[in-house]
Design a protein around this nucleic acid. Structure first.
Lengths: 207, 207
DNA sequence: CCATGTGAACAAATTCACAGCA
DNA sequence: TGCTGTGAATTTGTTCACATGG
């Protein structure tokens, strides 16, 4: 299948909205109602949903629970996914706790750090391991998703080691564009870039 | 001026690259060299830079230091910006420490939490204040940028209170699309959405 | 001559408008 | 009738190709 990241991210949003509706006991909803309720675009919801094979009822709308199941399956969220966090500083441990607390399709299965003072310590449920263990632990636990939360200088090297060990996707918090060797999917999240964006629009009036 | 978020985020990236070059003693660079060195597109660099009023020298390239100054000014990074972090849980305090450590154009000037156990505690340089103090502290410190790092349910209310107190831009880590009342600029950062994206592309082969 | 800056071609994403079906 | 699903139109973003000028 061929879905753009933009569409995909919106699907995630829809899924969340639908789960909330389901909790509230709503069993059917039209694209228009969904759009109104969560400030989305009705046409776009329909376009996006039909990309995964539409399943609405003309004249009625969508059945909430079947649609949730459909999207959950399409995204691959019907299985548990193990994550490895590399870098157990402020970002890495916040991420670990964040995901750990939100029992969902994800669990942090391993945490690595370079710093001897952090190795052996517990963060949430996991014990921090040395980065030298990446090559052993990643294949052992069959981890396909890695989180890079280390300083800029170390990011590329650790990403390479994750990929060499079998990681197929990387969520990168370090402020570098990582070189994506062969089919590895990389998502960069750079908080400072977002702050800079906000600053620009702050001053946009004066320009 | 009228610059898209996409362009703007790339400008931030260029700025970083240029700062690294400057540190390495490079005083001139062509768009092509810049593109090669950091895996970017030369044409796009030029298009983006000319949006802020091009300043390259034909046949030569760009002067690194003047360009840094130019971009820094265009983004509004030549002044210090105070931030308020709302929600001092794992995410909020990680963010605070992250920005705090990286002395740049940003400083966390205030941190708020709802939880009595956290109020009065120090996170980095700042002392956590109750959310009830938002209305007083934000105008007092003239804070224009707020960070929302609270659970979903509380996010909209706190965003509203920030805006009412004078905040003009919000970086939102909570998993909700915040309603952006009048010209307030909102940037959503939702880690779980990015993880879900990665999962989808993991399984993309089998589909 | 060589790299910038830019109009024109192209591609991607969004929105519109409506045909088609429960 | 009322909503989905979708081709067509539009807008937005990227790449190409080259004229321009230091």
């Amino acid at each position: 299948m061929d879905v753009s990241p933009l569409t995909l991210n919106r699907i995630s949003v829809y899924l969340r909205c639908l789960r909330r509706l389901h909790e509230d006991g709503v069993s059917r909803i039209s694209s228009q109602q969904l759009a109104n309720k969560f400030h989305l675009s009705a046409t776009q919801i329909r376009k996006d949903l039909t990309q995964l094979g539409g399943s609405g009822i003309r004249g009625v709308g969508y059945e909430v629970q079947p649609l949730i199941r459909r999207l959950t399956g399409a995204l691959g969220l019907d299985q548990k996914h193990s994550l490895a966090v590399v870098g157990m500083g402020a970002m890495g441990s916040a991420f670990t706790r964040h995901i750990g607390f939100n029992h969902g399709s994800f669990q942090v299965a391993a945490g690595f750090d370079h710093d001897a003072a952090k190795i052996g310590q517990k963060v949430g449920d996991i014990v921090v391991k040395p980065t030298s263990a990446i090559g052993v632990v990643i294949p052992q636990l069959d981890i396909k998703i890695g989180i890079i939360a280390v300083p800029r200088e170390a990011a590329q090297d650790l990403a390479d080691r994750l990929v060499a060990a079998g990681t197929r996707s990387i969520l990168n918090f370090a402020p570098v564009r990582l070189e994506n060797s062969n089919g590895v999917h990389i998502r960069n999240v750079d908080v400072r870039i977002y702050l800079e964006e906000l600053v620009f629009y702050l001053g946009a009036d004066e320009r």
